[in-house]
Design a protein around this nucleic acid. Sequence first.
DNA 1: CCATAAACGTTCGCCGCACTAACGAATGTA
DNA 2: TACATTCGTTAGTGCGGCGAACGTTTATGG
Lengths: 154, 154
Amino acid sequence: MSPAPDDATPERLRAVPSRLLAGAAAAADRLVNDRLAAEDARKWHFAVLVALAETGPASQSELSRRTGVYRSDMVAVLNELADAGFLVRDPDPVDRRRNVVSLTPAGRARLQRLDALVTAAQQELLDPLSPAERTEFVRLLALLNARHRPSPEG
Amino acid sequence: MSPAPDDATPERLRAVPSRLLAGAAAAADRLVNDRLAAEDARKWHFAVLVALAETGPASQSELSRRTGVYRSDMVAVLNELADAGFLVRDPDPVDRRRNVVSLTPAGRARLQRLDALVTAAQQELLDPLSPAERTEFVRLLALLNARHRPSPEG
DNA sequence: CCATAAACGTTCGCCGCACTAACGAATGTA
DNA sequence: TACATTCGTTAGTGCGGCGAACGTTTATGG
């Protein structure tokens, strides 16, 4: 719910938390995507690269769980990253249903670049807030996520 | 960036504000839409009804500005609301390019029902936060929106 | 007065994201 | 051996955000 909440927006709409949330999320997405577009990347690419760097080679479904990308959408993301030489898919010898996805050196380098872009976007996003406010804001967001996200146990 | 940030998600991803924002926004949207679905409504319907109730009859492009719905998408929303008898479109005699969109009594009644649903969804959304935290959270969100939304003057 | 620009409602279409369904291949379990 | 489950993959749905273009109507300005 997002495009143009300028001054014309009625109070009763402007005060709705879910609308504010949607607006802020849309703005954040824009900041991130615009920056990543300069490197022909999207946020999924970044998420996958981080997940691989953080926890080492993994199967596609594992990456799906770690990043939140649906496994059906993961295919295309991995195709793109593999085509660009940032990772490789090898059949898993111990379970031949699986692919083992591993970062290449080029992939690590790219992660560093994307990380800088994403970090910059976060800073721009939180720029209007004081350091204390940023911390608090992130804390509250984490609380909402913890409560409202579907988790293994519920 | 959202579906399944369970415990498997790497720290480096979980700490990214734009991701937390996207997750919270997705959850909020779900809460709102699920409730509205019980009345066969969607958030746009609610937004348009509020805008009409708040500022009186308006043209479609004005509604577009007030609610944030693109004018190309507004057409379908108004069709649905008009088909259900919640508003009427009349040609504007003073400017024959425009339609004057007005609430019907049924529209006002519907707004009241939807408003209750939306309000309940907001409460469920903010439930994990203390009253003080809710206020602060909304304040910070408003700050971000004010800064990062495209406005007439920029 | 006439040309040109702008706004309005509308249709069509693109893209990204969340999500479901199904299928063959491989694996685990009864 | 039969059955269910997992994995990678393809295809498709629905919604929201967004741009292009078109006919109609109104405003602008030589």
